[in-house]
Design a protein around this nucleic acid. Structure first.
Lengths: 364, 364
DNA sequence: GTGAAAGCGCTAACAT
DNA sequence: ATGTTAGCGCTTTCAC
């Protein structure tokens, strides 16, 4: 015997057939009142609706999807939902999806590329209209190949893989992408520091292999070069994006490291950690040391002094990601291949954590 | 003609039938290698797997669900994903769901009860194994009735509605619930203030009609009573849970309001706003004014002075919510009705924002 | 305006 | 170990 319901006892949900019988009509009619996409006599409609109410009928989205209508779902894959960077993007995705009457399937990789791949597959199985992978990626050859394969499979089914906040695949593959001017933001904020007279700037944090780090570092270096400042490897202290890293490394460097008058933290979280280390070491910001971050998440405004950082239109990125992937909701596709790409701007927001370098030695 | 695919061109995804044909076996066999729940000759299995690879076959979760297997989905409804309170719970839900190979459907109500109801329906349509509604609720009669109805419908289908961080429905309904000792936490932290000698404590923020507010306020009042301190309506300044509210109302009260030596912000966000107003008014924390919050989200540690607040096991609440709802994954139900309820403890975490009231007038 | 019937892709008896 | 087949619940021609 087939298991009718997953619960302990064998209740059965009402189906269109039940509704049809009770209302004395055919299932086709029930379907028509359900979808209100076809004329149905008012009297009939009311009888059907009454029957549905009486039976506590709830349409089965799986059956509906199987019968050919879109599942109205978009998948979003982030590394961590409590990280504001991802959370804001997720919010944009959710809101835009909701506008198109879509629900979001979300999952967290916790930074594991293998999980990311597995989740893409899971969402494909669920026939998501789009699968949005968010955040930087590691430049691993076999990983990229796998990703491209998934993109092709998805595309072959009329779905789309969207890269959000990461560079396109080397390999050609049918993906859409939403980027932000990462390199430009890093360039701008470094230049801001340079303009204040800083020449020895510490770049702190960020996983070395992550695209996000590579791009920010590239912008930073370009700004240095443009002002004719030699790059000092000792001043590039990569690591991770954690608060703990920012605090620990900053403390170590303060104790025994190269000279510098400003810190460019790879993101605001790292900046928060660095700020704490600075505070604990009695180094005043910005008088003794300037500090900037990246991302402009809420903590930047909570720190004292308030953190000068680079703003990224995170929520908008999320929105664009779904717009790019789902061509106009119910309407028929207005273009052959919607394999688009958008690139949003970033800009620095000046707050209180930067000042001209102090004349005195910064070493305590 | 039926629309085979939603994309511009009419590609068709490979199905079990295609795989079966290419591998020269029956669809049953394909299904068997797919679910690895039945013996299949190694040679056959390899042939089938090869065929799948060749065809880029990806199983259709809808068809599978329709054929009787669980959709392996849990729904979670929060008011806002970027709010750490919800985000941490969501993380717990996601992680626990992932352990059972389930994906999360998440959506945001932005505080609108109507949207909440609508989302529950949507998730029911998708046959989620459980639907978890997170956060406080408004004590609206008709809303409660509707919620109870949804709970019954869900239950009738073998699914479950889980109330997470909110009190049970007045009306009897088949729901599971995960609560935290909200009243107790409020009692404890108020008592902490009282023990330091504060007698005039301002309770600031929180929507008056929200269950969360009611419970916290109740704990606050109980602590006052127990110490024989008369309650002063002027010292209960409810409002919202926003940072902006905390800042604005605090500023107003500082200018022209009742006397008080300590502030109990309804949550950490409000506390952050209040802290800013205090800072702007030149009132020092904790020397001139003590300040506490509720929730223990990251900002509490970022504020200076670090905020004394009440810790809630948010992530654990999320985990419990799914455990309660999904009885042991694949195994058959080991109990009749899993309509359980758990209540987790809260505790205050003492940091640096509280001191004994100053002898001098606090008014500036 | 409404009904009959053919699938959609998969799983699970039931045979063999 | 593998094949046959009957649904799962819905939408959608095609008739009437």
């Amino acid at each position: 015997m087939r298991r009718q319901s997953s619960a302990a006892d064998g209740q059965r949900r009402a189906t269109v057939t039940d509704v049809a019988r009770l209302a004395g009509v055919s299932t086709a009619t029930v379907s028509r009142v359900l979808n209100r996409n076809y004329p149905v006599a008012t009297a009939t409609r009311e009888r059907v609706e009454e029957a549905m109410r009486e039976l506590g009928y709830v349409v089965n989205a799986h059956a509906r999807a199987l019968a050919g209508v879109s599942g109205r779902t978009v998948g979003i894959i982030v590394s961590e939902v409590i990280d504001p960077f991802y959370a804001y993007i997720a919010r944009g995705v959710e809101r835009e999806a909701a506008l198109g009457d879509r629900l979001c399937l979300v999952c967290c990789t916790q930074g594991d590329p293998q999980r990311e791949l597995a989740f893409i597959e899971l969402m494909h199985e669920r026939r998501a209209d789009a699968v949005i992978v968010v955040g930087g990626s590691f430049a691993d050859r076999s990983y990229t190949t796998e990703l491209a394969r998934r993109a092709r499979e998805l595309d072959a089914g009329g779905s789309k893989l969207v890269l959000c906040g990461r560079p396109p695949l080397d390999e050609p593959a049918p993906t859409a992408s939403v980027e932000y001017d990462n390199e430009g933001g890093a360039f701008a904020i470094t230049d801001h520091l340079l303009a204040q007279g800083h020449e020895r700037i510490l770049y702190l944090g960020g996983p070395p292999a992550l695209s996000t780090t590579r791009e920010r570092l590239a912008g930073h270096r370009r700004a240095l070069e443009l002002r004719g400042i030699a790059r000092d490897p000792e001043l590039e202290q990569l690591g991770s994006f954690s608060r703990a890293f920012g605090r620990r490394r900053m403390a170590e460097l303060l104790k025994e490291g190269p000279e510098f008058t400003a810190v460019f933290a790879a993101n605001d979280i790292v900046a928060a950690g660095a700020a704490q280390a600075l505070e604990e070491a009695g180094v005043r910001v910005p008088q003794d040391m300037s500090l900037v971050g990246y991302d402009d998440i809420p903590v930047a405004q909570e720190l004292r002094p308030r953190l000068t950082t680079v703003h990224i239109p995170l929520e908008e990125m999320g929105r664009q990601a779904v717009r790019l992937a789902v061509s106009g909701g119910d309407e028929d596709d207005w273009r052959e291949q919607t394999t688009g790409a958008v690139r949003l701007g970033t800009h620095i927001v000046v707050r209180d954590s930067v000042a001209a370098p102090s004349k005195h030695a910064r070493r305590v």
